[in-house]
Nucleic acid binder design. Structure first.
Lengths: 181, 181
DNA sequence: TTTAATGTGTGTATTAATGCACGAAACGCA
DNA sequence: TGCGTTTCGTGCATTAATACACACATTAAA
């Protein structure tokens, strides 16, 4: 972990904060780089110094969340599946402002693709086709099946404004997944 | 008004904000430049780029308030003395955090000196010794007398935690000054 | 449809901020 | 008192951010 120049952190912090705020107020399409730099109190040139355009900015922000989710998964390996699932839903809940507004703002596809990829990767260690009820089935099919369900549920849950608390989501989802894996 | 580099404004803003916070928490004597730069999320070197030391920082902050007060005076020339006085006390009230903690933190002498100077300057236009009740008296004596009273009252008011609202202070002070000028 | 205004992405010279290192001064404490 | 630690104030090379300008695209109004 080489030390990052404090100016870089401050600029990126300000830009990302401004981005989230504007995502709320005008949506992704309506906001301009001008808006972002104004809000962040940063020169417009500085935004281009860190990001290619607003799409890249969005991607990088999603990327950060994906990384965070992956780290969460690794630190939750010893935890039971319900509590682990709950932790994930709570993370989405905390960052609801970002994720939900991204959905209505048109950023959903980017998030969906990356989150799906992550889910498949994480589930790899959980699926067993050499014994048990899935003996003889194709691992890649099961993976894709379950991962897609996970992603779709999260997206639905966010779009609907979190109609059930994290714990309930984790419990019911755990029940369903139990029947498959 | 030549345009100031945005970085300068941001750095100074952060430093001053940190200074006020620390003035509250540890007082002027206990705080170090290190503390200030840490809190401001700025390199220690940057503080020295803008200020000689913490005394200079304090002075410059007071100076800014003095300038603000002078501008207020000029924009209140047409206003009646009570309302004008009220505006001043309200300004001190808004910046109570700074002024009051400065008093207990040991910065009072610096403020007192500059505020006294300003008061004398501003009162110059108000005192008339060519006619009226003060005909024949020395202008400089009257000036010093009234200005000192003003300053002392403000200091007392701040130290005591603003025991009366701005309006009341302005009214009573107006009454007293009326008898002299 | 033409025109004006706004936004984009980039080049560039300049400037402010950074990180680091240093000796000296001030401080806290055994 | 002496001694280790902290803070100070500064020098310096490097880097990030800035202001400004430009050509071009997009949008909105006349």
């Amino acid at each position: 972990m080489t030390k990052v120049d404090r100016r870089i952190l401050k600029s990126q912090e300000a830009i990302k904060k401004a981005f989230i705020e504007l995502l709320n107020e005008k949506g992704f399409d309506k906001m301009t780089i001008q808006d972002i730099s104004d809000r962040a109190n940063v020169n417009r040139r500085t935004v281009y110094l860190h990001y290619l355009d607003k799409f890249d900015l969005l991607d990088k922000m999603i990327e950060e969340h994906i990384i965070h989710l992956r780290n969460m998964f690794e630190s939750l390996l010893e935890t039971d599946i319900i509590s682990a699932g709950q932790a994930f839903f709570e993370y989405f809940e905390i960052n609801y402002l970002f994720f939900s507004t991204m959905m209505v703002g048109g950023g959903a596809p980017h998030f969906r693709a990356q989150y799906l990829e992550l889910s498949v990767e994480l589930l790899k260690t959980e699926v067993n086709v050499t014994e048990g009820k899935n003996k003889g089935l194709h691992k890649d099919i099961i993976l894709q099946f379950v991962a897609a369900a996970y992603v779709e549920i999260v997206e639905w849950w966010l779009k609907e404004g979190m109609p059930h608390p994290p714990r309930v989501m984790a419990e019911q989802l755990g029940e369903l997944v139990e029947r498959i894996l």
